[in-house]
Design a binder for these strands. Sequence first.
DNA 1: TTGATTTTTTATCATTTGTTAAAAAAAATG
DNA 2: CATTTTTTTTAACAAATGATAAAAAATCAA
Lengths: 188, 188
Amino acid sequence: MNTISNQIDSILPLPAVEKELLLSRLQRIEVAKGKLIISAGKIGHHVYFIEGGLARAFCENQRGQTTIWFGQEGDVMLSYLSFFKDQPGYESIELLENAVLYRISSKDLQELYRQHIHIANWGRKFAEYELLKAEQRFMDLQFKTATERYQDLLVNSPAILKRVQLGYIASYLGITQVSLSRIRAAIK
Amino acid sequence: MNTISNQIDSILPLPAVEKELLLSRLQRIEVAKGKLIISAGKIGHHVYFIEGGLARAFCENQRGQTTIWFGQEGDVMLSYLSFFKDQPGYESIELLENAVLYRISSKDLQELYRQHIHIANWGRKFAEYELLKAEQRFMDLQFKTATERYQDLLVNSPAILKRVQLGYIASYLGITQVSLSRIRAAIK
DNA sequence: TTGATTTTTTATCATTTGTTAAAAAAAATG
DNA sequence: CATTTTTTTTAACAAATGATAAAAAATCAA
């Protein structure tokens, strides 16, 4: 089975013609661990589908870097601000492992949106699902304690916990690494 | 000038034909202060455009109600989970003032998405802009102090501050009312 | 393996925010 | 206007997290 094809269908299944069109605009790239895919303050001109590997998005602030997102197999990687409004984004995205990505230029994808209703609805579904994820993320930060958020990660994303150092996890949870160490010691 | 028409165009300007189609599916309603428009745990079957009035979304939790959103003139009001996935939503939405709303049934809007590419792209733009707002909201909660978030409200949403009691503002900012009082005393 | 580097944990103290209760102020009601 | 109710502020103490520094553990490289 073609993984990238499944990834597209998991957002909204596309008819064969539109699926082929979208696939024909994708470029497969292999990228080494450490590579910066998107740079904060710059406009990103591509949307990436992760077929394999691990990435993190982070923002620079007074405390150094804060990780705001982890992406793995099956996730889509982009700067929302860049793709939706053609503006520089807040975040940088780097690869934490060697990766296989498929990318499409924003220009090509916008063009497909304009011309094909199935792809327009596919793009709508993509934005809607991302919005639900963002809402969930916001509610977790608003309503759950740091300990609960860490326990959620243990249950829902054990793979990421295994692959990533705790400093990144701590900032993803919105706490310091010291605080995460305390939480880990407390729940044992 | 027709306000609801402008509100639609502010998301993405629609050609006359599609604009008329969308407008024809809208129903104007006047709703009294205090009315619950959307109920947590139930599926909401409409999307609302606020022409006038003020609303708040809130979640029930162990500490009582936490306000997660304020909506005023020009905003769109819906449960993301209900409209995007036909599932019960987290939040209730109530009117804090008498309001004039335009509503469309989810069913009608989904049907328009399926049949008209301009409306599909309009819906995509809507989801994209809401996603940018959700991202901004998340980043504010992650990166700013409660004092900074309150000062942002003072600058960006003075109208809401004037119209809403501080208990609601405090929970919107993710802090207790007591804490907000302290912040207000400190920055004077 | 050994030594150097990085990551994680622990300790201490300061700061912020939460909790509870009461006082003060403001708004609503008769 | 006076009274009642609601909202906001203040106070005192507890709990959680941040900041800094140092120790311990794990990882990496020669």
